[in-house]
Design a protein around this nucleic acid. Structure first.
Length: 295
DNA sequence: TGCAGTGTTGCTTC
DNA sequence: CGAAGCAACACTGC
C-alpha cells in the first residue's frame, strides 16, 4: 500500500534514473487505468516526445513534470508500483530485459510501460488495476479539485504543530485514525502508518479529536514525523505489493509494531496482546493496554 | 471449495 | 452537509 514513505522512496529513486530522459513511446494493455485523457491514443500522443524535467510527490501522488508544461500524475492506490529497467521488444509486448535490475524479468501485472531514451523503461505493475494515470496541463492541474482539496504534507516545512492542530480540529467529532488517513486533512498517511503512529503516541484509534489534550496532540504530531522519517529511512513497507523501482523490498514490514500484528505481544512488553478492530470498513491494530479509550 | 480479507479513492445513499 | 457503504479488482489465506 503505497503511502507517503513508499511514494517518497519511489520519487527519490526515479530522480536518480529517469530525470532528463525523453518519453519515446507508450504501451498499455489496460486502458481504463488512464483517466485523462480518456482515449489511449490521445494520451500516447500527449506524452510522446516530452522530456522528464522534474519529479515530485504530492501526498500519495507521483508527479512527472514534463517539457511543454505538462504533468504525468500517477496514483498507485493499493497494489500499484513503478519498476525501472532496460527493455526489449518481445512478441509485440514490451518486457523487461533479463539482465536488467528487476528481480522478476517478466511481471504479468505490468499494465503500463513508458519507453524512455537510452533504452530504458518505466513500468507500472498493478495487480488489482486500481491505479490512476492522468496527463495534465500544469495550470489546469494546479487548479484541479483533486489537487486543491489535499491537506498539508507532513514533510513540508510549513507542517508545524500549530498547522497540524488547526487542520486536525476541522473535524472535532472524527475518530483520530480516520482523521489521520483523511487526505483533505493531512496528505500521505494511510492504514499502515496511522496504526503505527497511534501506537507510538499511545492513543486508541477510536478517540475523537475533541477528546485529545494538547499534550496528546503534540504526541501524535511528533509520532507522525518520527514514524514517517523512520519508514523513509527503511525505504517503505513491502509486506504487500510495494517494491522499490529496482524490484527490491523495503524494510518497514520487519519493524511493524502493531500493523497486522494481531495476537502478538505489544512490543512495549506491557502485557497487551495486539487487537484488530473495524473502523469505517478497515482494520485498526492497537494494544489494548497502552492505547486505552478514554472513559 | 468458497469466501472473507486486503485498503485507496470516489461515487452513491441515507 | 456529513457519514457510511460500496464498487473498482485479483489474489491470499483460512
Amino acid at each position: 500500500m503505497p503511502e507517503l514513505p513508499e511514494v517518497e522512496t519511489t520519487v527519490r529513486d526515479l530522480k536518480k534514473y529517469i530525470l532528463g530522459r525523453k518519453i519515446e513511446d507508450v504501451w498499455s494493455d489496460t486502458y481504463k487505468l488512464i483517466k485523462k485523457p480518456k482515449s489511449f491514443s490521445e494520451f500516447k500522443k500527449k506524452l510522446t516526445g516530452r522530456k522528464i524535467e522534474n519529479i515530485q510527490r504530492k501526498g500519495k501522488n507521483i508527479l512527472l513534470r514534463l517539457s511543454g508544461n505538462g504533468t504525468l500524475l500517477i496514483h498507485q492506490k493499493m497494489t500499484g508500483h513503478l519498476l525501472y529497467g532496460k527493455w526489449q521488444i518481445t512478441n509485440s509486448k514490451w518486457q523487461l530485459k533479463e539482465k536488467g535490475p528487476l528481480e522478476e524479468p517478466v511481471n504479468r501485472f505490468i499494465h503500463l510501460m513508458l519507453w524512455l531514451s537510452g533504452r530504458k523503461m518505466l513500468a507500472l505493475s498493478d495487480l488489482r488495476k486500481f491505479a490512476k494515470i492522468e496527463f495534465w496541463d500544469n495550470l489546469e492541474l494546479e487548479n484541479s479539485k483533486g489537487f486543491k482539496i489535499l491537506g498539508p504534507d507532513p514533510l513540508e516545512k510549513s507542517f508545524t504543530f500549530k498547522k497540524f492542530k488547526s487542520v486536525i480540529k476541522k473535524k472535532p467529532k472524527g475518530k483520530v485514525k480516520q482523521i489521520l488517513m483523511d487526505q483533505s486533512i493531512i496528505s500521505g498517511i494511510g492504514n499502515i502508518y496511522s496504526d503505527e503512529i497511534l501506537w507510538v503516541a499511545e492513543i486508541h484509534p477510536f478517540t475523537q479529536i475533541v477528546q485529545l489534550s494538547d499534550a496528546e496532540l503534540k504526541g501524535i504530531y511528533v509520532a507522525v514525523k518520527k514514524i514517517l522519517a523512520k519508514a523513509i529511512k527503511l525505504k517503505g513497507d513491502s509486506m504487500s505489493d510495494y517494491r522499490l523501482i529496482t524490484g527490491k523490498k523495503g524494510g518497514y514490514q520487519n519493524v511493524q509494531n502493531v500493523y497486522q500484528q494481531e495476537g502478538k505481544k505489544c512490543p512495549r512488553k506491557d502485557g497487551g496482546i495486539i487487537k484488530r478492530i473495524k473502523i469505517g470498513g478497515r482494520s485498526a491494530h492497537f494494544c489494548p493496554v497502552c492505547q486505552q479509550l478514554k472513559q
